[in-house]
């Protein structure tokens, strides 16, 4: 084997018109890495395939799952299906969807020892932080859209577009029902971003992808339990899982949006605190591994 040095390294004279790489460069890099990742593609596929299967199976069952909200209406209206699915998903599926990519995205660099590879180029820790955060949030919203869209479409196609019975027994016309169902799913955007931020924080702090993915799910589960304990009304208000149920008010005779507003504020609070914690932790940290 022979090694030939054919390149004469030139002194770096960064041309003034050549823009300095920043968040954009880091973002492109993250997106390419995410697209190459089997897990991210698999999750998208699952989000696409699972809803129609679940809807079809539920539709075929004689006994509707009447212990969950909208469970006993699933044979009456295709709009009840996505609401039942939403109530189920809120328990642990949505936190898991939020954590699969976000819980890994920082810790994977620790796992591969690649922090030093990234941080010895021209992008700063801040650039990389925002690139990873935006990638994780963007990806999670994409998964949410695919999952929600698939669920709603499956309900309408498999069961039908019959009017929906409201939570106070009123009839909701088909067109209004569709709008409300879409809105109900859209209200999960804020808490999902909150769960994404929580997973990002855990990913930075634990430096362990498995922990970053599993912990938000466990935390979400514990929050569900806490939320169901009677007498903890104040605590319940600040839980990240409560906003996932705030859509119930939309389906009352006189719709109320108070819980939605509170949920939005609580989700924003969690998001800001978790992202600030993750950012400061990444900024200050000694990169000694790898």
């Amino acid at each position: 084997m022979t090694i030939t040095a054919t390149t004469t390294p030139q002194p770096t004279a960064t041309a003034p018109d050549k823009r300095r790489p920043g968040v954009g460069a880091a973002l492109r890099w993250e997106i390419v890495k995410l697209a190459a990742q089997i897990r991210s593609r698999a999750l998208l596929a699952v989000a696409l395939i699972i809803p129609p299967i679940v809807v079809a199976v539920l539709n075929g069952q004689q006994q509707p799952p009447s212990d969950t909200i909208y469970g006993r209406h699933v044979h009456d209206s295709g709009y009840a299906m996505p609401l039942l699915m939403l109530a189920w998903a809120a328990q642990w599926v949505l936190p898991l969807l939020a954590a699969v990519v976000a819980g890994d995205i920082f810790a994977a660099e620790d796992q591969h020892g690649t922090w030093k590879t990234l941080l010895t180029r021209s992008v700063s820790r801040t650039h990389i932080f925002w690139a990873k955060t935006l990638t994780a949030i963007g990806y999670n919203l994409l998964v949410l859209v695919v999952f929600a869209g698939g669920t709603i479409a499956a309900g309408m196609l498999i069961v039908g577009t019959q009017p929906l019975t409201g939570l106070t027994g009123q009839a909701i016309a088909s067109g209004t029902a569709l709008r409300l169902v879409v809105t109900a799913w859209a209200t999960t955007i804020a808490p999902i971003i909150g769960f994404t931020a929580l997973a990002l924080l855990l990913s930075v702090r634990t430096r362990n992808p498995a922990f970053g993915i599993a912990a938000p799910v466990v935390i979400g589960f514990v929050m569900q339990l806490l939320g169901s304990v009677t007498g903890l009304d104040l605590t319940r208000k600040f839980l990240l899982t409560t906003p996932l149920e705030a859509w119930h008010g939309l389906f009352a005779q006189h719709p109320f949006t108070g819980p939605l507003a509170t949920g939005l504020a609580v989700s924003a609070g969690w998001t800001i605190i978790c992202l600030a914690g993750a950012y400061l932790s990444l900024r200050r940290r000694d990169i000694t591994g790898g």
């Binding site: 460069a25 890495k33 190459a36 591969h112 590879t117 990234l118 021209s122």
Partner: peptide, 23 residues
């Protein structure tokens, strides 16, 4: 120490992506 790359990507892809971080 020993340089680290993304094991699932090719040598060229790794270089291309790293170069992307430099413009």
């Amino acid at each position: 120490e020993s340089p680290k790359f993304y094991p699932g990507l090719t040598g060229r892809k790794n270089l291309q992506l790293l170069a992307g971080l430099d413009g």
